[in-house]
């Protein structure tokens, strides 16, 4: 069994606001992700990426469709501590906002210890300490940051801490929702390299959500392009980026600034797309 994630026909609709139509955020999306592989989830704002990730980690409940993670179907109604901890072991998430995703009261060490006490099978003092330094090493933070509180850290450092916290649970799948979008380019590159190394070392599967195609190419083997809640294209990242089959992917690619970038052409394509839904 080499599948980490299998999602089939996932649909989520949000009820209508007064006077508006129902919003179909995700519609019939299916994909698989092999163990230790990485999937890029690409699309513009409003394409349903965030809803899909929230469904995937269990922060929202799908209207239809099933999610199988690590060989087990995720049910909506599961109560009790054991079920919660098991679900936590299946999937963890790193959030977009590096400023709000850490508890501001807790130092890095306290935050990691808090997670480990909950999730280590043998939460003895020594094993916790050893695991903490291992995690800090994984995410490339030095021991001197252990005593720091979130407001003393930079955006990149906070995101490293968030990754360390997620890894502390030892999940089968790690979902990163625009995790590097708020960081500047050089820090982005460091974090991406870090993620590649972590994937190689720990064998965790990555789901990488982003609107930045350059970033997708850097870390993911597979790609899923979302448009208006539907998955319009799926395949090996390098191939899709080289020869996009769906016009929307083509448009996304031409939107990215590059050597032959023409803003007027992008605007034209975009207008054409808005006309033919």
């Amino acid at each position: 069994m080499s599948e980490a994630v299998r999602v089939s026909d996932l649909t989520k609709t949000y009820p209508a606001r007064r006077g508006g139509a129902r919003v179909v955020a995700v519609k019939d999306v299916s994909f698989e992700l092999a163990k230790g592989e990485s999937l890029g989830l690409v699309g513009e704002s409003g394409s349903g990426k965030t809803t899909l990730t929230r469904l995937l980690v269990g922060l929202a409940r799908p209207d239809a469709g099933t999610i199988v993670i690590d060989g087990r179907t995720r049910e909506g109604r599961e109560r009790g501590r054991a079920a919660r901890l098991r679900r936590a072991k299946e999937v963890q998430m790193v959030f977009q906002d590096p400023y709000g995703s850490l508890d501001r009261r807790m130092s890095v060490e306290a935050a990691l210890r808090d997670v480990l006490r909950r999730h280590l099978p043998d939460p003895a003092k020594d094993t916790v300490r050893a695991r903490i330094s291992e995690l800090m090493d994984h995410v490339g933070l030095s021991e001197k940051h252990l005593g720091s509180r979130p407001h003393e850290l930079s955006g990149g450092q906070r995101q490293r801490v968030a990754i360390a916290k997620a890894l502390a649970v030892d999940p089968a799948v790690l979902v990163l929702d625009e995790a590097v979008s708020a960081l500047d380019v050089s820090v982005q590159a460091q974090i991406l390299a870090l993620l590649n190394r972590i994937r190689a070392e720990t064998g965790v599967s990555l789901v990488f959500v982003t609107h930045d195609l350059a970033v997708v190419n850097e870390v993911t083997g597979q790609i899923l392009v979302m448009y208006k809640g539907e998955a319009v294209e799926r395949g090996v990242t390098a191939e899709v980026l080289r020869r996009p089959r769906h016009p929307y992917t083509d448009m996304l690619l031409s939107s990215a600034p590059g050597p032959n970038w023409q803003p007027e052409r992008v605007a034209e394509l975009r207008a054409a797309f808005a006309g033919t839904p």
């Binding site: 269990g58 501590r81 999937v91 959030f95 850490l102």
Partner: peptide, 25 residues
């Protein structure tokens, strides 16, 4: 704030989340 979601994903139950993490904040 997203850190609350992060706690939930870690498997922290409602009562504990409120008493131990929300109230002190």
């Amino acid at each position: 704030r997203p850190y609350v979601d992060a706690y939930r994903l870690q498997g922290v139950g409602g009562v504990q989340l409120i008493a131990r993490y929300l109230l002190p904040n």
